[in-house]
Amino acid sequence: MPGEAKPDFSKWHGMDRATIQWGPVIDESKCVGCGLCVIQCSEKRNVFGYDEEKRKAVVLNPENCMVGCNNCQVACLWDAISFPDVSGVKSLAKELVDSGKSKEELEGRLKKNPNLRLQLPPRFFKRASLEIVRPSRTVRILP
């Protein structure tokens, strides 16, 4: 967009994005050109291009792909998109936690945006996992 700064995806939590193996690969023989992957990818990342003549999606900006996201692959009815195994990304995530980097970033985020903090009644944590029965609405759990 003119006048709008291009978002910078060159780093992932301080790591060089180019060194991280994560992004879609399209099997053109399976792609029917429905275009769902193209728009499934967020506008700001916009990983895909599209060949209107051949009716095929094309991976244009793989380095913009969000690490850990495979929403395009999940949506593809024709199984035409593949991703690297998730174990590589998982071990990078472990590194972020072990090095204290995630904690540091989290504190920064909470400081910058105090609205992210919630006060919850103690009974909330009695259940091992939380079920919210009204997923359609923003559930505000405030004191």
Partner: peptide, 24 residues
Amino acid sequence: FRWSDQKGVPVVANPGSCVMGCTT
């Protein structure tokens, strides 16, 4: 997600904002 300081854990506060099919 939101953050609970009491327990130091994340909380699913806006489930309706979750992108369908996303498991990032």
